[in-house]
Design a protein around this nucleic acid. Structure first.
Length: 274
DNA sequence: CAGTTCTTTAGGAAAGCTGC
DNA sequence: GCAGCTTTCCTAAAGAACTG
């Protein structure tokens, strides 16, 4: 299933190696080995060689192999050419997400982590909505608009919890409200606040699954003043409430069904055991 | 009964869209 | 790049459900 294009994987490994991330990689073999170890069902497909149809075949095969297990998405992360327009195609074929080539280290980290998170959620029986990670500037086209958008994304990435209006944000990157909004949409295919919302939800899911922070603390860390609103936003994104998500991630045997009628009772008994 | 967490709703602020 | 209208989303508050 994996590409034999070692130069691509070596560069990907190098990107992962550049940042402090749980995956420590030196070669393409390491990359594959470690991803397989962490998420054994995850498939890494290189689509830069034009063999996109492999993803569809991979997904069909995986669905057969799942046989009886509830899994919403075949855990496939695809590598695509930055400006090739393959994104929609590979996502429609069943890939969870894709990494743009040439690689942007931050994008690679973000997308691998996001894919692993989705895999973990699926393995715990939580079936998130089919929402890909926010589009991320791949670094291939340094046009004025893309530069402005990537500069803004970098700033937002470092300040997920900050509260800024579009006008303030535009001022910070030496632009204006309309130009920035337009540039961001052209570069990422979504509005600034849609992008920000998805990044916040991904970060929140990460905090909830990897730390012992409570809902309020997580809400605050990803930029929500009110935990109630955070809970609403989280449910909109992942179909389950934060407490249920934590419960399901940490105590998968405690709850049988996602949409059980007496959810509160089950939730509390579950949390009490965690 | 107090405390916690989630749900629902209304109002207002801010962002998005569109035409110029 | 600006202005005006439309849409979206956040906040705050009240209440429900549940636990200890």
């Amino acid at each position: 299933m994996f590409s034999n294009n070692n130069s691509v994987f070596s560069q990907l490994s190098a990107c992962l190696h550049q940042e402090s991330v749980q995956l420590t990689l030196t070669t393409s073999e390491d990359l594959i080995e470690q991803i397989v170890r962490i998420a054994p069902d995850m498939i890494f497909v290189d689509s830069t060689l034009g063999k996109i149809h492999h993803i569809r075949e991979t997904c069909l095969l995986l669905q057969k192999q799942m046989n009886g297990r509830h899994i919403a998405l075949p855990p496939v992360l695809s590598i695509i050419e930055g400006n090739s327009g393959q994104r929609g195609e590979v996502l429609n074929d069943g890939a969870i997400d894709c990494v743009n080539y040439p690689f942007n280290p931050r994008e690679v980290i973000m997308r691998v982590e996001y894919t692993l998170l989705i895999v973990a959620a699926c393995q715990q029986g939580i079936a998130p909505e089919r929402v890909s990670a926010p589009l991320y500037y791949g670094g291939a086209d340094r046009s004025k608009y893309n530069y402005l958008a990537s500069q803004t994304a970098d700033y937002l990435e470092k300040n997920l919890a900050s509260h800024m209006t579009l006008a303030q944000l535009a001022q910070r990157v030496n632009s204006n409200r309309n130009s920035l909004s337009e540039a961001f949409k052209q570069a990422f295919g979504c509005t600034i606040f849609q992008w920000l919302y998805h990044r916040r939800m991904e970060k929140a899911a990460e905090y909830l699954s990897r730390t012992h922070l409570d809902v309020q603390q997580v809400a605050y860390r990803v930029g929500y003043i009110d935990a109630n609103n955070f809970s609403t936003a989280f449910k909109k994104n992942s179909t389950v409430h934060p407490v249920y998500f934590v419960c399901k991630m940490k105590n998968p045997d405690r709850i049988e069904a996602v949409n059980c009628p007496d959810i509160h009772k089950k939730l509390r008994s579950c949390v009490a055991f965690s």
